[in-house]
Design a protein around this nucleic acid. Structure first.
Length: 251
DNA sequence: ATGCAGATAATCT
DNA sequence: GATTATCTGCATG
């Protein structure tokens, strides 16, 4: 019961109608639900709009890929990177602004079995207990892992994370034993959860970015075991064969 | 515990 | 052709 008691009230769209560096720390301790899996957010990063944040996908304006970031707040922006990973964001500010919060890590508080099956591939070929067992705390530790746990893929790019029902209808979403019986299959819902204690929130430079390295727009809950290890950006060394132009052969 | 190299493809120059 | 909002496995201390 790592996350403590869950609140099942959905967050309104107005929550996201603010600058991303403001939304980001406020997102810590909140719960994102997709079908049977729920994750309590423990680490996030804010990204700004065109011309203001060199590290943001929207820095050079709108493209087909980042179009969702220019849409309405509260929607999910999913992007594909490194040829194999998906990462999920929540859009901030009014339509046209192009900013968002990257979901970097969280604790799986419901649907742990589903999340683990997604991670391990769910293949029946592996005998029970064999292979590498993924620790609970690692299921959502890192943006791509978090996306896997939540089952967020390319097809979920642009989906709305705001519950369309009345604010009072919270009992249908979460039962007291943390079952998500009321969430329709395929639906994504952002819940209030339990906001992190402000005194436990830390901030620092964003992970893996090659520009705006000083901007302290990474926010996390201090001491939480699900927070991912910080990694600075490392320029990938190119293939020796690919750098042949202008390079003198080395004996 | 920390560090490095490889994987692998969409996106942008 | 270069870069990438990353992860994993294998190496070393």
């Amino acid at each position: 019961m790592g996350g403590g008691q869950l609140s099942s009230a959905p967050l309104p769209r107005s929550f996201f109608d603010r600058p991303s560096p403001e939304v980001a720390p406020d997102l810590l301790g909140r719960v994102l639900v997709h079908g049977p899996v729920a994750v309590r957010l423990t680490e996030v990063e804010a990204y700004g709009g065109p011309g203001e944040d060199p590290a943001a996908h929207t820095y050079r304006g709108r493209t087909p890929r980042n179009a969702v970031m220019f849409g309405r707040p509260g929607h999910v922006y999913v992007y594909f990177t490194y040829g194999m990973h998906f990462c999920a964001n929540l859009v901030c500010l009014p339509e046209g602004s192009g900013s968002a919060v990257l979901l970097r890590a969280g604790e799986v508080v419901a649907g742990v079995d589903v999340a683990r099956a997604r991670r391990t591939g769910g293949s029946a070929s592996a005998p029970a207990g064999a292979g590498r067992r993924v620790a609970d705390r690692d299921l959502g530790r890192g943006p791509a892992r978090l996306a896997v746990a939540l089952g967020l893929l390319r097809e979920h790019n642009g989906i709305d994370a705001i519950w369309p029902g009345a604010p009072g209808e919270t009992e249908t979403l979460l039962t007291r034993d943390h079952r998500l019986t009321g969430v329709p299959h395929g639906a994504v819902v952002m819940l209030e959860g339990r906001p992190a204690d402000p005194s436990a929130i830390r901030s620092g430079p964003r992970t893996g970015v090659s520009t705006a390295k000083e901007t302290p727009w990474r926010f996390w809950i201090d001491g939480d075991p699900t927070v991912s290890p910080y990694r600075a950006h490392v320029p990938r060394r190119r293939n020796a064969a690919a750098t042949s132009v202008g390079e003198a052969p080395n004996s």
